[in-house]
């Protein structure tokens, strides 16, 4: 019996992972020019909906994925953290573009040197701005991570 129970748990994990990775509701936190590339990814040419992540929710409480698109400076840092805190578990974060990832060339008085100093990040996408293909690859990496991680039941 115990072996069977163990077998059942792994299958549940896999099933939940499969369901979660194809039903990502994203929250676009768009602050800069990377937003253009985000629009390109979400619209018909590159069509992020093919990956089950086509539905942006403009409320953090209804979304699973926080897309931080663009430069984040110290003035807006508390807002980003509050948005992240308001998201319900399970939640993931993608850092979209080099500014969000490391501050990029804004190595100055105003800019946060990478949003991982504010919130934990799952996938970093480089590029200034990243090509839509790079964004989709980042999304696929995240889906791989979601599918293979331990599924918490909240």
């Amino acid at each position: 019996m115990s072996g069977e129970a163990g077998f059942l748990t792994t299958k549940l994990d896999e099933m939940l992972g499969w369901a979660r990775k194809y039903s990502i509701f994203s929250y676009p936190f768009v602050t800069a020019c990377c937003g253009m590339e985000y629009m390109s990814v979400s619209c018909a040419h590159y069509d992020i909906d093919r990956f089950g992540a086509g539905w942006p929710r403009f409320s953090p409480r209804q979304s699973d994925l926080l897309l931080v698109v663009g430069t984040v400076n110290h003035k807006i840092a508390p807002v980003l953290r509050k948005v992240w805190e308001q998201m319900a578990e399970p939640k993931w974060v993608i850092s979209f573009g080099v500014c969000a990832t490391s501050g990029g060339f804004y190595d100055n008085y105003a800019t946060v040197q990478g949003i991982d100093r504010i919130i934990p990040v799952d996938v970093y996408i480089g590029g200034c701005p990243p090509r839509p293909e790079m964004v989709l690859e980042g999304l696929m990496l995240l889906q791989k991570k979601i599918a293979s991680q331990k599924q918490e039941l909240f």
Binding site: H74, K75, A77, R81, A110, V112, D116, I118, I119
Partner: peptide, 9 residues
């Protein structure tokens, strides 16, 4: 020089 408004990780 930076002046963070929140505790940085």
């Amino acid at each position: 020089k930076q002046f963070p408004r929140i505790q940085m990780r």
